[in-house]
Design a protein around this nucleic acid. Structure first.
Lengths: 325, 325
DNA sequence: GTGAAAGCGCTAACAA
DNA sequence: TTGTTAGCGCTTTCAC
């Protein structure tokens, strides 16, 4: 250490000064700080963590950084990390198991203190075997694993949304959107199904709608003939938006001809015409709780296996109309 | 290294195997790999970079992770990093110089290979003095520094937007929104000003509008009397949306009574009624170029000081109406 | 083709 | 109060 040499002291003394300056005389302290200043010295975190200390870094793997749901979550997580003096190593999996595995491996090599993960549907359970740090899942559980998990109540949210439509008197409710392999999609479709079946209404689901054109095709087929739908429950944000656009373009009145309710709130849901009714997930809460669980595990030294299911909220807006009964 | 012991070889051999296995016999190679497998061994990246090697990590400091502009940028940057075998350390500054400085310092201690930064308006130029790695700014330049920078053409974009309004025959154009301390806001207001002044139109700017209520107050005052505005140029996304909501709520026809044009495209700009005309910045391009500049500097060993100004694009939609002339 | 040894920058333990 | 030493896990000579 040239700081030590310049200040005319030993390396250990410099270390003491850096770490709060216990048992260092005023004079030496000042001399060392001066040397640090002059040399523009910054302690090497890598060397520190080599000694077995924490890396003060947590990993975050999400399907997409650009997705508003996950970027909001990432913001909340980075804030919790910052409050705990840690940084976030950000990685995107694109929902690809191979990519996910690759990212987990690099994070293990980085010796992160903990990992927050929104696992892909085919996440490989073996990859975390030798992780050596706490892992918390959010938004979705890890398939076939009992890892601590924080998620929104997908089943309950779908039930509430569907029940709202049923109670409003809608009879032919189409559930569309998502990816049938995805945990969240499955749960939401289940919630929808259980409610329509209990109400004796037809089960009309098209869980694989993704982009504009597939949404258009589905809607077109369901909007003609005598088996015309009168309401849509979209379980995914982008699909909700596409459905809205398609209906508007086709001059189909919302909710007069077809009601629309979506899953996940979005920025302009209340600025559309009509404002769109949605099930709102507590994104920030979910992410914050997940991050806090990591730091709790780090502080207490023990990891809990619990799954935390947070309540979702039905946001009433114009797109479901008033009760028809 | 217990992998070495288990495989009955020396530490150096293990190292060779990990790094591609040059000069290692098939047999030893296999034995070592078996030991690695059985022990669930992953090389410690910290120890590696201690030896002076790259950390394979770049830092990213943005004002807000939840902001769509920056999260889109972050996604693009993490993708470039991944393609170069690197990870992204994510930090948020909240536009607070103190926070920014704190984050830069922690990143320096992490010995990141490079830093991508959207500096706050009062960024402290001294903090990067001993950084020891390439730094690239994006979206905004570093105040008073000549760092390589990638940004959109704020001045030009504002000119194009304002000219479009002028050419369409609007006479009283209000420029609103943003934060007058912010570089991007200033440039946009300049572009607006130069165009209206050249056209002999009144300069009507309220650059400090931020939230809904301030937008409402500003609009209210400008929408009454005989000095009523007939067009709005909003230089910030959230303000554009608020302006839209306020106009709709007040039953003011867009563009019939007041035209509206915004800066930065947004998800539902084309789903609103009418669709909102905007200046679109090439977010992904900006971010990708910035990230690539880092890796170029790393590969070529030299840093260029250039500023890259990327073209923006006027997206015509209904909110500016047809030409009035 | 392989192993022994040095050293990257730091801190904890022990001496002085 | 301060300095010396050892060692964290790895890679890189340099011998063999």
């Amino acid at each position: 250490m040239d700081v030590a040499r310049r200040a005319g002291v030993g390396a250990a003394t410099v270390s003491r000064v850096i770490n709060g300056g216990q048992n260092v005389s005023r004079r030496t302290m000042a001399a060392v700080q001066k040397a640090i200043e002059e040399l523009g010295y910054h302690p090497n975190q890598a060397a520190r963590s080599l000694k077995g200390a924490r890396t003060k870094t947590i990993g975050l793997i999400i399907p997409s950084v650009a997705d508003p749901f996950f970027s909001t979550a990432a913001a909340a997580i980075q804030e919790v990390a910052r409050a705990h003096g840690s940084l976030v190593l950000l990685a995107a999996s694109d929902n690809l198991p191979a990519r996910e595995q690759e990212q987990v491996l690099t994070l293990i090599q980085r010796r992160i203190d903990g990992l927050i993960l929104a696992p892909s549907d085919a996440a490989d359970s073996s990859m975390l075997r030798y992780a050596g740090f706490p892992v918390v899942c959010f938004d979705r559980p890890f398939p076939g694993q009992t890892l601590p998990t924080v998620l929104g109540d997908n089943y309950g949210g779908a039930r509430v949304a569907t029940e709202h439509l049923v109670l409003s008197g809608f009879k032919r409710i189409l559930c569309m959107g998502g990816d049938s392999k995805l945990f969240t999609s499955q749960k939401r479709v289940c919630g929808y199904r259980d409610v329509v079946e209990a109400a004796g209404l037809p089960y009309l689901a098209d869980p694989n709608v993704q982009d504009y054109s597939s949404a258009e095709a589905t809607l077109r087929s369901h909007l003609q003939g005598n088996k015309r739908i009168d309401a849509i429950f979209s379980i995914k944000n982008s699909v909700t938006v596409n459905a809205y656009k398609i209906l508007r373009l086709a001059n189909i009145d919302i909710p007069g001809s077809v009601a629309l309710i979506g899953y996940d709130d979005f920025e302009l849901a209340d600025a559309l015409e009509p404002p769109i009714c949605v099930v709102r997930q507590p994104v920030v809460d979910i992410a914050t709780r997940a991050a806090e669980m990591i730091f709790e595990a780090l502080e207490k030294g023990e990891e809990q296996r619990q799954t935390l299911t947070l309540k979702v909220e039905l946001v009433h807006r114009g797109s479901c109309g008033e009760s028809r009964i």
